[in-house]
Design a protein around this nucleic acid. Structure first.
Lengths: 141, 141
DNA sequence: GTTGCAGATGCAATAGATTTGCATTAAGTT
DNA sequence: AACTTAATGCAAATCTATTGCATCTGCAAC
């Protein structure tokens, strides 16, 4: 972990109105390196190597989510997953996710458009903030 | 609850290879009347009025799901929801759901098509079995 | 209609993920 | 360096769902 990455994380955390504690910096840097969302447990296990309690890890994730640094999603397996919100991504719809119901693999998808016509038939939908697809990945098919 | 509805439920349950017990019949009839998926807790509470234990309610739901009578989904709030699988719907993709992240209201949607082009860019997706949209309903917007 | 037994139920205990209370510690300001 | 308040550690508590086990009951066969 480069010095600058740590410093940059500290800045991000402080800008969000939180104290830049080691647990939070480590969490942020871990998520930065990950290509897919990580679970509470995965982050907690990683942090426990440096003596951080799991409750602290959970709080770091939740606090940073509330502060707008992370995005928290539930992908169908009853476990929260967290990922970094990219620069300038705040105002946009988060990207869709695909979860393999067999192996649990999670992929972040690019831009997926929904058929507008079919959406308009449901008067209940006000605004869509998240799209989740479940199924089997190519390896599990 | 009409006599015939009860008898029809019993038949459905037996055809699925399960015993037509009061708890299962009541569960099936309850889901039949509901326009959106019900949670474990909601079904259990309803059944508890007639003295049915919550473990029994949970087992009734899980057993009938395994037997192919119900569909079980997790819509992002860490709670299982169940809905009746309609006649002849077995072989099809279950319909998409929309969940309001504010009030928790769940709506069943009709046919929603995804942009094929965007899907093909992800090599990880083998087969999609479920589509979930989250956001705010018109009332919570 | 009675019988027999595998499947179903009730109750309590357990599991797994996440949260919370509270005393202690430490980040960041002055 | 001191101070104020947020953050942490640890344990206990929540919440949803599941399971063990003794008891009961559909329902198919007599």
């Amino acid at each position: 972990m480069s010095e600058s990455a740590v410093e940059q994380s500290k800045l991000l955390i402080r800008e969000a109105g939180l104290r830049a504690t080691p647990a939070r910096v480590a969490t942020l840097n871990l998520l930065q390196k990950s290509s897919s969302p990580l679970t509470h447990a995965e982050v907690a296990e990683h942090l426990s190597k440096t003596g951080v309690d799991k409750a602290t890890a959970f709080r770091a994730l939740n606090d940073m989510t509330e502060a707008g640094l992370l995005r928290r999603t539930e992908l169908g397996d009853r476990v929260w997953r967290f990922e970094l919100i990219g620069e300038g991504e705040h105002e946009h719809l988060g990207h869709p996710h695909f979860v393999c119901v067999d192996c649990g693999q999670v992929s972040c998808l690019g831009d997926i458009k929904l058929n507008q016509r079919s959406l308009s038939t449901s008067t209940q939908i006000g605004r869509i903030t998240e799209i989740l697809l479940r199924g089997q990945c190519v390896e599990c098919l």
